[in-house]
Amino acid sequence: MADIKCVITYPDQMITHIGEFEINGLDAVEKIISPGTLHVTRKNVSVAVIIRVVGMIYGPKNLTCEMNVFADNVKVNSEPIKGKYKKNSGGYLFNYSNL
């Protein structure tokens, strides 16, 4: 089991709403730490097989929104994970797997 923390950075002024996030299919806790920095966390997650993070943040196109994933404070991803803009929804989708 590990404590998972996702650190998401975004242009604060332009992002209008933070949606719900799930880590390995379980509800996560979203908390804004400072303007433009969001922490998505869940404690005691089984990371034996996979780490999956899914969630949306809402805002207009052309923004840079990035996420880094930590398991027990050890960074899991090598490159920052970019939120993918979804034109029909009007937001940025984070859809990450460590496989």
């Binding site: 709403h17 029909n88 989708l93 496989l99």
Partner: peptide, 29 residues
């Protein structure tokens, strides 16, 4: 098989934007 399922899972979530359009669920606040 697991890697395939994982890929299918990533794609299913990526493609959900089409379902959002089908449901006419445009974001508003």
């Amino acid at each position: 098989k697991f890697v395939e399922l994982n890929q299918a899972s990533l794609s299913a979530i990526d493609d959900a934007d089409d379902e959002v359009a089908d449901l006419d669920l445009k974001y508003w606040r």
